[in-house]
Amino acid sequence: MTQTTVLLLGAVGVLGVGLYGLLRLRNLIQIIVALQILAKAAVLALVVAGKASGHVNLGQSLAVTVIVADTVIAVVGLALAVQVRRRLGTLDVKALATLRG
């Protein structure tokens, strides 16, 4: 097993942690933390993939773009969470289940 394989598997592991969080968590801000963890996994995977195929700089530049894009997502998500807190008085996503069926 090479270094790249280990790191790629590690990225999948981090992805799994993020997914686990999304399945279990109820606090909106913590859910955004889980989304960030997912993004870390993707960043890592991209760079490792670049390395594995001999295009490490390509992988790096894609990863930088992804970091920027996911920061935007984090900002939007947090702003949304703040609004939810203001309008609903809670961050619990269970309160966000009025639309169903």
């Binding site: 399945l23 279990r24 968590l25 859910i31 996503v93």
Partner: peptide
Amino acid sequence: RRTQTGQLNWNVAGII
């Protein structure tokens, strides 16, 4: 209709 729970966690489970 019951699958359309409106619960975020279940929705993510749907994706998986």
